[in-house]
Design a binder for these strands. Structure first.
Lengths: 234, 234
DNA sequence: AGGCCATGGTGATCAAGGTCACACAGTAGT
DNA sequence: ACTACTGTGTGACCTTGATCACCATGGCCT
């Protein structure tokens, strides 16, 4: 039912995708004709790891969790995809399987494009091929940074500090400085920084005791950003 | 002097780059006119992390170590680049800085292309843009796999087993099954699997005691591949 | 030969954090 | 109100692997 409600909000036109802007009118029309706008509820799985490419997803509203997992169920969250971003481009372009699993965290509005259409439009419109290449390189970049920050910091507290500071820059409340909504559970935070749920709980209480952060309900306030940053070495 | 020796071997023509094959003659000519074939000795640094893109490197001979490093000098080797592969495409396409440091492990023959030429040829020849996009997606894929295998395996022995098995598939001697040359030092192996040099030494001797592997000089023989694979869970 | 340096091998020590085991709070469903 | 479930908080314990310290080996240079 959340799907239906979301659908009513923006049913009339092509989603406002930053990635589609600056394209020539011809390409925009072509994209509009092949895309399929879909709505997903929270917790929906768009695709799973090692499944052959079913399509490319351009996210216009909502947030999506991108993760890989081990056989024993342990999970590592690669990143949380924000509106305007794309999913599954790599798998479609290289004709391989998805390298991660995508699951919606909230109700999402998504523009879906089949791999064959993506490749055809990339061949037809060079600007589109260039844009996708640029996108892929950004994705590669961010994965490298992820890898570095996860592997080259020896303590879990450093990784948590890095995560919090990173969130401040992207999700931070502009009005109330240092304030932001904690939208993930401790379990999910643990999966982002590669540690256990208990450790995240312990570290957050430790940070609170040291007055690095405060908590008001599900809102977290970073009082001492400098202290957090000083925990980061890499 | 190693540089000069290598140069004599293949000075006459364009390097045999798999990545360049299947291109139209026009594109091949264009590439030939903008590329610059260079030779590096072992231990040369092509570029360093966070330096603005100076160019793209297509490796035709030799091997290159791609790594990121922390402030305290700790290093993580992302991968060892093999002949036929490219370096720095992401940085050139997105106009960002290099995300890693590239250092030759052996004397190398490299075809160098400036970022501006790369972008120009990508705009001019759609097949080239498509090929670069495909390349980027493969690079992204392999980085994801790296991230997964590093983070989702709790023990260092598992990561080492995974590395050895992976090497068997790519570098394994086809004649003598299970046999391969160990070309990296324990220190470098440690940097590949995110552990300390001592741990690698200990694990290798443990594997030898359990008769998973044997050693003859710098050649390592995997006698019990199944046992190594059974250490891998993720 | 005699050093020198990079690499490999091994023991002792120790802290970080994974795991297990509960207790407790909030929220939804009936 | 009474469960039932999900998320959070905390103690006890114990394994893994980092680190330090030291020695052995085997080129390579002068």
């Amino acid at each position: 039912m959340l799907v239906a409600r979301t659908a009513k909000v923006a049913v009339n036109s092509m989603p406002e995708l930053a990635i589609f802007r600056h394209f020539s009118p011809a390409l925009q029309n072509a994209l509009e004709s092949v895309q399929c706008i879909t709505y997903y509820p929270a917790g929906a799985v768009l695709f799973v790891e090692s499944q052959p490419s079913r399509g490319v997803f351009f996210l216009s509203r909502g947030r999506i969790k991108l993760s890989v997992c081990a056989r024993d169920g342990k999970t590592l969250i690669l990143r949380v995809v924000q509106p305007g971003d794309a999913l599954g481009v790599g798998a479609a372009v290289s004709g391989r399987t998805y390298e991660a699993t995508a699951e919606t965290l909230e109700p999402c509005e998504i523009s879906f494009i089949r791999p064959s259409d993506l490749l055809r439009l990339m061949s037809l419109y060079n600007e589109f091929a260039m844009r996708m290449a640029e996108y892929l390189s950004q994705e590669y970049n961010s994965t490298c940074r992820e890898l570095r920050s996860l592997m080259l910091s020896e303590s879990a507290s450093e990784r948590l500090a890095r995560l919090l500071v990173g969130w401040l820059d992207t999700n931070g409340d502009t009005k109330h400085r240092g304030q932001m909504k904690l939208t993930l559970t401790h379990e999910e935070i643990a999966q982002m920084i590669g540690t256990s749920r208990e450790t995240v709980t312990r570290l957050l209480t430790e940070f609170r005791k040291k007055h690095f952060v405060q908590r008001h309900g599900s809102t977290i306030v970073v009082c001492n950003r400098g202290a957090l940053e000083s925990l980061i070495t890499a």
